[in-house]
Design a protein around this nucleic acid. Sequence first.
RNA 1: AGGUCCCUAGCUCAACCGGCAGAGCACUCGGCUCUUAACCGAGGGGUUUCGGGUUCAAGUCCCGAGGGACCUACCA
Length: 498
Amino acid sequence: MSWLSNRDREVSSEDSNVLRDQRVEKLQSIREDGVEPYPYTFNRTREIADILEEFDGDLEEETKNHEKLAGRMVGFRDMGKACFLDLKDGSGELQGYTNVDLLGEDDYELLQALDIGDFIGVTGPIFVTNRGELSVKVKGFQLLSKSLMPLPEKWHGLKDVEKRYRQRYLDLLVNDEVKETFVARSKLISSFRRQLDDEGFLEVETPLMQPAAGGATAEPFVTHHNALEQDLYLRIAPELYLKRLVIGGMERVYELGKNFRNEGVSTEHNPEFTTVEIYQAYADYEDAMNLTERLIARGTEDAVGTSKLDVNGETLDLRPPWDRTSIVESVEKATGTSDLSETSAAELKSFAEEEGLDLPEEGDLSWGETVEFLFEEYVEDDLFQPTFITDFPTDVSPLAKTKRDGDRQLTERFEVFVGGLEVGNAFTELNDPLEQRERFSGQEDGETKDEDFLAALEYGMPPTAGIGIGLDRLLMAITGSDSIREVILFPAMRRKDE
RNA sequence: AGGUCCCUAGCUCAACCGGCAGAGCACUCGGCUCUUAACCGAGGGGUUUCGGGUUCAAGUCCCGAGGGACCUACCA
C-alpha cells in the first residue's frame, strides 16, 4: 500500500464511521472464511430486463434452464430460514428467493451476512412466487463485490440536490428517473449524429484551445501553454474553425462537443455545455430551419419515444412545420405597436421607459439591441411551442448575412425556441470578407477579431448556412427539467474543502 | 457579483416561546421457510456544516466563514 499517499490515508480515516467500520470488519471475516470478496469475473447468461421481457405475464412452472444473473443487492427481506432479495443490474430489477435448503447452511449464512449495496451473482431457475411475482430461485450465489458504504434509503431516494450532483453515482443508483434522463441524453446525441451522417455531413473536430476565442460574444476561460509561451482560450464556439473547413471544400460538416464560457451559472447556464454546430454549403437559413425541424423532431422521438410531449401538463408538439415569425413582427404583436423598423432607437427607448422597463444602464443601446431587449421582455417567456424567431437586427448579428431584399438593418438569422427555451441560433453566413472585417471593427467589446479567420474568408467561402443547437437546453425542454444541472451528469460545483 | 432562503444520524425528516437531540428506513443481536417500504423484540449510531458570541442553559438568538437552492445582472 506504499503507493497510497498520506492524503488518501487521512481522507479515508476521516471518512470512517461506525457503519463503515462494521462493514470493514465483515469484509475481513468473510475473507477469513475463505471467500474472496472481490473476485475477477462472473459469467452471467442474461440481463434482468431480458428475463422480465421473456416471462412478461405468465409462467406456469419454474424454468428448466438455470440462469446466471448478476447485480447489486438493493433489498433484502429475511424470514429466518428463507429470504427474498432484490437484485438490480443495469437493465432492471428482479426479486430472488432462496432458503437454507436450497443453499445449504454455510452459504445461506453468508448471504444473510451480506449488505444492501453488495454485488452478487446468482444461479437458478425463474419462477413465480405465490404472491405472483416473477423471481429467480437462488440455488447458488457468489459475492462479486463487497460495498463498504451504505446506500441512500431506497424508499425516499436521495433528495439533497447538492449530494445528488456531487455524488451522481448515488443519484443514478437510487433515483431511476435520473438514469432515464441520461439515457435520453445519450439517445438524443446519437440520433443527431445518425441523422447528420445520413444526410452526408462529416463529423469533424476543431480546437478546444484557441489563440483567439471567437464565434460568439462571451467571456472565455484563459489558460497558458508553457512550451509555446502563449495564452490560449477555451473555445466559446467552434464557428470560425468550421467555416474554415467550408472554405477548404468540406461542404457539409458538423461538430458535436463542448464549449466553455466563463460566466455566471444558473438554471440555464453551465460553464461547459454541449452544442452541435452544422455548416452546409449552398444552403441558406430557410434550409437551416427545415434541417433544424427535422433534427429536433426526430431526435426527440429517438430520445423520449415521441415528438408530442407532455411537459408539465401542456402538450409540446414538435412535429414540423414550426411557426416562423420575424423578431420585429413578434415584438409589434406583443406590444401592440407598428412600424418598428421605422422607429429610431431613441424612440424605442422612451417607449420602454414609459412601459416602466429597466433598460440596461451602460452605453447607448443601438436599434437592434433595443429590439432584442423588447423581444426578451415581451415575447421570449411566452414561447412554448417550437418557434423560429427570424430576421435579427444586423447590429446584434455580426456573422450573419443581411437580408437578400436589400434591408441592411436585418439579417437572415433565426433563433429557435422550444418549451420556452432558446435552443438554437442559425444564419445565412456572411461570406463577404470585406464586410465581415468591417462588422468586426464595428463591434465594441464583443466579438474577438480573429485575423486568421478573416484571411481565410478572403480565399472565398461559398454561400453557406450555419446552425448551432444547444443540446443541454434542448434536453431540458424535452424532459421538462427546470434546471440545466438535471441534464448534465456532473454540473459545475464549487470545490468543497473538508 | 448583489438579494432571499436552506444545512440536524448513512438516507428521509421531527424537535412549540431558548429547557435532557428524536422517528422511520439502513446497521447489529434475537425470532420467523413465499416476502415485497416484510413483520415482531432488543440495541448501537450525533462536533445539530464550521468558528466565535449572548445566556444558568443554544439545533433554536446574534456575528463571521464554508457549501447549496432560487431570483437579479453577464450569457446560450
